[in-house]
Write a protein that binds this DNA or RNA. Structure first.
Lengths: 340, 340
DNA sequence: TTTTCTATTGTGAACGTTAACATTTGGTGT
DNA sequence: ACACCAAATGTTAACGTTCACAATAGAAAA
């Protein structure tokens, strides 16, 4: 308002002039270099304050080659797992002073995942976390050039393991769910699985099978759903036909909800006639009819692990090829001992 | 691998040399300037391909002052509304060639919102969309300097309207929900509201009240929840005490779920004894017991509107102070005519 | 005092683009 | 052939930092 003809944002040089030092000294203060006298530091800090100077992160990024920004490839969905993972990563990143850019895909496949990573990279991110639950997308990541830091939030590494993977141990979750049912006295446990191309589905199936086999129970045929309540509801129709069926492990809570609905309509009492276990522990699960026994995943921890792995890759430090977060069984009212 | 001693990323100059032109011509090709001969353009394009050259967005941003990145301030939650809004914006932004950086707050208040905006700004975004459902945060935005493009996804503009607002018309949604119940023959409609400091809560209350009054129905006292199923469940206890209560409009689907659960436990049949309407249409709603009548919001459209408003602000064009997206009533099985 | 350090500060050149202006080219009209 | 104009291309200087040195100061050692 006074006599400054140009109203542009102040830059480092402006601060330097006001403080009576060189721009380099200002830069040193900003990055707390040890070689600055206390009195000068204060003078510079005062000037920064007075001008309300904000460093230009683009210029900094240009010269350092680091943007302190991370990319996350996710997809266009509010599915509980992926969304929670995204927030978990974002939170951990912010705590470490990193910004997060997202790219949410409408469809997940080789091309879209690769394109998203490239785009994020062009945009200047230092590294990318890919929330890639699909079998296909995990394989895709193997093709990636090793000159860029990428971490997958998935289930298990591809064959080559060129990309580190951070994951929830779905298999362990499925095992504890199945064991819980078996311990209750059920002869065997049926399974409503997730869609075919999802790694998550496969791992949950594996855990379920493994536990059944190690308990000497027969392994029944499984049913395929697609994560939606609708598919759980429709599969419920077929569940109802099966005689002697007393326990079902469902691959996620939403499908379990659909199943519960169908059973209710058919007059089957849960858990009296039949026990149901879900997976995810979405916030609604505790209020289903009946409250659902399910497997909870720790997304905050997952995000933290993912982030730290990514940061190490960015720094070029060696990283363990795989980090695993253990899920936890939450017992509520949808499971009970079978009727004699 | 051959004789290139330096393995750095190719830059514009490398392309220029290979194509036998100046870097400026390469720049012109990249920005499809009209003043390039077709044959040179092809030569340059070929060189770009051969070297697999990718423009450095930081350098570009530094000189243009535009990063083609937008910021979104949201919060650390997978609450359906905010999460969907975020994805809606992200999707629209990507379609326009903008990247999006997110900043998810753990708590929403004056300081955190302002800090997040500043941080995003320092990070170099061209503009910010704030998903600010809290009364407080909307007011906060009024204090913002006008020299930076900010759009709020909220309910209504603050007093000064210095910040454009894009919103779902919650009031209209509440009106249609209430009217639906009244049309069914209910004498009046009770309301389980959202938390006190949320704009959304207020607007839904207003709509409910307005519709009741215009229909000449008495306006009962309202109950306060906090969006969680738990609060709906607990409020259900009090709902049960009220004689002659036949219809409830609940401020969101999760609370409605909790209420449904409580009613079920108490042996009250929905919709036979009592009708319930929710708000949001979360994917689970159709499979509640019973399937929930609710109000659906169009988040994709919301995101699009928000984005376009933001882009206009960035370009310095005038923008309407308020844009509104109409919600839609979805009738399912939780509502019926009252018992005589 | 003079020398020799070391802590502090300054200088100039990157970083990889775009903007502004200057120059060359090739085609027209005379 | 000449001047002239527009189209096509090139040159130089930003943008706002950090980096690699160079230079200066002040203090300790001789």
């Amino acid at each position: 308002m006074t006599d400054n003809q140009k109203r542009r944002q102040p830059v480092m040089m402006d601060v330097a002039k006001l403080a009576g030092v060189s721009h380099q000294t200002v830069s040193r203060v900003l990055r707390d270099s040890p070689h600055v006298r206390e009195s000068t530091r204060e003078r510079v800090l005062a000037a920064i304050n007075q001008l309300n100077y904000r460093p230009n992160s683009m210029a900094k990024a240009l010269v350092t080659g680091r943007s302190r920004t991370l990319g996350v490839v996710s997809f266009d969905t509010v599915l509980f797992g992926p969304a929670s993972t995204l927030f978990g990563i974002e939170r951990a990143a912010h705590d470490e002073g990193y910004a997060v850019s997202i790219s949410s895909l409408r469809s997940l496949n080789r091309e879209t995942v690769l394109a998203a990573i490239e785009q994020l990279r062009d945009q200047g991110v230092d590294g990318v976390a890919v929330i890639a639950p699909l079998q296909d997308s995990v394989d895709t990541l193997g093709d990636l050039k090793a000159d860029f830091a990428v971490v997958a939030v998935a289930v298990e590494a591809g064959q080559d393991a060129s990309i580190p993977v951070v994951a929830v141990d779905h298999q362990a979750g499925a095992i504890s769910a199945t064991r819980h049912l078996l311990d209750l006295g059920h002869k065997t446990v049926w399974h409503l699985a997730g869609p075919r191309d999802w790694k998550e589905s496969d791992e949950r199936i594996k855990g379920w099978q493994a536990q059944l086999e190690s308990a000497g129970a027969t392994v029944p045929a499984l049913f395929r759903g697609d994560w939606t309540p609708r598919s759980g509801y429709e599969l419920g129709e077929r569940i109802l036909q099966i005689p002697d069926l007393t326990a079902v492990f469902v691959a996620n809570d939403q499908m379990a909800l659909g199943l519960l609905r169908k059973l209710h309509e058919a007059g089957r009492k849960v858990p009296h006639d039949l026990s149901v276990v879900g997976f995810d522990d979405i916030p609604e699960s505790a209020y289903f009819t009946p409250p659902l026994t399910t497997v909870r995943q720790d997304f905050a921890e997952l995000g933290r692990r993912c982030l730290h792995t990514l940061l190490r890759r960015i720094e070029g430090e060696p990283v363990p090829p795989q980090a695993v977060v253990a899920p936890e069984l939450v017992v509520r009212d949808s499971t009970a001992a079978p009727q004699k």
